[in-house]
Simulated assay, not measured.
Amino acid sequence: MSARAYFLAVMALTLPIGQAQAADEVVVYSSRIDELIKPVFDAYTRQTGVAIQFITDKEAPLMQRIKAEGEHATADLLLTVDAGNLWQAEQMGILQPIRSALIDANIPAQYRAESHAWTGLSLRARTIAYASDRVKPAELSTYEALAGPEWEGRLCLRTAKKVYNQSLTATLIETHGAEQTERILKGWVDNLSTDVFSDDIAVL
């Protein structure tokens, strides 16, 4: 099954079966920008005849909106990025569990919440961008290695306030433990060439 076909199937399964079959439209709150997500919604409508009404915004405002709407929330599906946001949405109590043989068959268990509150649809590649005129590819290996003294004064990082770096830190803790992760993070900070940046574009 293609990623697009699977995504469309998940969208149909976010509604109770009877409601999904009778629904004239599905309401999606999405943190993905229109240009990226609208083609998928249009394909879903062509295949099913069900219209997609969607609202796009940053993750935090969307989740707060769902929480404020409470039992009157109109969203059938929250589409966001990064497991950190999904975890936060679950902690806020704004998600409902979904049990689906289709999801279980296509998405490995490590990419789904044990509570069945959410499921991943794609994986994020955490790449290392480097200046090709100053860094040789052979010098690069892992994020952990960037804490080494040979990188002193050579690193640029995005702020730790962003969920992407928080998720990366959580992965390091899961892999190496809290103490070693703290040493890695301290090494990154010690190796910074400038203050941290607010977003990826600013870093590049």
Results as ranks from 00 to 15, higher is better:
Tyr6Phe: 09
Phe7Ser: 02
Ala12Met: 03
Ala12Asn: 04
Ala20Cys: 01
Val27His: 00
Tyr29Cys: 04
Lys38Cys: 02
Phe41Arg: 02
Phe41Glu: 09
Thr48Pro: 09
Gly49Pro: 01
Val50Arg: 05
Val50Pro: 15
Ala51Asp: 06
Ile52Met: 04
Ile52Asn: 04
Thr56Ile: 03
Thr56Ser: 04
Lys58Val: 06
Lys58Glu: 11
Leu62Ala: 06
Met63Cys: 12
Ile66Met: 15
Ile66Cys: 08
Ala73Trp: 07
Leu77Val: 06
Thr80Asn: 08
Ala83Thr: 10
Leu86Asp: 05
Ala89Trp: 02
Ala89Pro: 14
Ala89Gly: 15
Glu90Gly: 05
Met92Ala: 06
Gly93Cys: 13
Ile94His: 03
Gln96Ser: 11
Ile98Arg: 01
Ala101Asn: 03
Ala101Gly: 01
Ala105Asn: 13
Asn106Val: 10
Gln110Leu: 00
Leu123Met: 13
Arg124Ala: 08
Ile128Leu: 14
Arg134Tyr: 08
Thr142Glu: 07
Ala145Ile: 10
Leu146Lys: 07
Leu146Arg: 11
Glu150Arg: 08
Trp151Asn: 09
Gly153Met: 10
Arg154Pro: 01
Ala160Asp: 11
Val163Asn: 03
Asn165Gly: 04
Gln166His: 04
Ser167Phe: 13
Thr175Asp: 14
Thr175Ser: 12
Ala178Ser: 08
Glu179Gly: 02
Arg183Ser: 11
Leu185Val: 11
Asn191Trp: 03
Thr194Tyr: 01
Val196Tyr: 01
Val203Thr: 15
